[in-house]
């Protein structure tokens, strides 16, 4: 069973003594596509490093596939694939050389596991003899994923694979992850982009070293306690000021072309429309997004 367990994990930064992660417990079931969602500095990388046996937790236990990250680190290292956040491959080696090197490192060959990487590798194969440093961001990311998959790992750890990558490449990348999941690989992925949360089966929202919520995206949205409304009217900035001042409104946040609001006890749609003195207002109840939930959890701690 290639499950991932974290039990009461604590870790402080050595330099500042500040808590990087605070009493984190998580369980990821085998075969799941699990997302760790949170901003930079939330502790995502620290958790990844503990699970990939790269650093030791100050307290708590963690295991991957039943193997302890401290005692059985050798077994774990053989069975996982890892793509660190700042992983940028060997810039002065070609695509083929990079791939071949990592294959040999894991005691295998490109041919042996071709089936697994075929779909991804085909897209970069035309650039086989190009140096990795000369590839585009999206291409580098694909090559890095191939390298992490080359030994057909049981569990795949991807630390912010889509950061700094444009929206089109990001979509493609998530498509590839879905594919991999269907082949039975357990995938743990982190991202600061809240909109990517809905692409995972299960997610943990993490902020300042604390896990705020763990569940399926749908369930996390269902747990949002208030009715949420989207509101739009010409002069969005002034509207936001007015909403924040209004006693009828509990929270108001801008979300793209709309503002998302919740009402206080005495507030309602009708009363707000009346009090706003605007003619051209569009308002509707909406289903919260993960970002709404994140903001709610952040501000209600």
């Amino acid at each position: 069973m290639w499950d991932i367990f974290l039990q009461s994990i604590n870790k402080s930064y050595t330099e500042s003594g500040e808590k990087a992660v605070n009493d984190v417990s998580l369980h990821v079931e085998e075969g799941k596509l699990f997302g760790l969602i949170g901003p930079d500095g939330a502790g995502k990388t620290t958790l990844f490093r503990i699970l990939t046996t790269l650093i030791l937790a100050d307290s708590g236990t963690a295991s991957v596939g039943g193997y302890d990250v401290v005692k059985d680190y050798k077994v774990i290292r053989k069975s996982i694939g890892y793509m660190p956040g700042r992983f940028s491959l060997y810039q002065d080696l070609t695509v083929k050389e990079n791939l071949r090197f990592f294959a040999t490192l894991f005691n295998t060959t490109i041919q042996d596991n071709y089936g697994l990487i075929e779909d991804i590798y085909k897209q970069i194969e035309p650039f086989n003899d190009r140096k990795a440093g000369k590839l585009s961001g999206g291409m580098k990311q694909k090559l890095a994923l191939c390298c992490a998959l080359i030994h057909s790992p049981k569990v795949l750890f991807l630390d912010e694979p889509t950061t700094g990558v444009d929206a089109v490449s990001r979509k493609e990348f998530w498509g590839m992850l879905k594919n991999l999941k269907s082949k039975g690989i357990t995938i743990m992925v982190s991202t600061p982009y809240m909109d990517e949360a809905s692409l995972c089966e299960e997610i943990a929202l993490i902020q300042e070293g604390n896990i705020m919520s763990v569940n399926t995206p749908d369930e996390i949205i269902a747990q949002y306690p208030d009715m949420l409304y989207a509101i739009k009217s010409p002069g969005m900035n002034q509207l936001l000021q007015e909403l924040r001042k209004s006693e009828l409104v509990a929270t108001a946040n801008s979300f793209g072309e709309y503002h998302h609001i919740t009402f206080s006890k005495q507030g309602s749609m009708e009363l707000l429309l009346k009090s706003l003195h605007r003619s051209d207002v569009e308002m509707k109840p909406i289903r919260p997004t993960i970002e709404d939930c994140f903001i709610h959890l952040m501000t209600h701690e």
Partner: peptide, 13 residues
């Protein structure tokens, strides 16, 4: 610096 050290350490090598 490249982050490849992490990969090397995580490999069975």
């Amino acid at each position: 610096e490249l982050g490849t050290m992490e990969i090397l350490l995580v490999s069975p090598f």
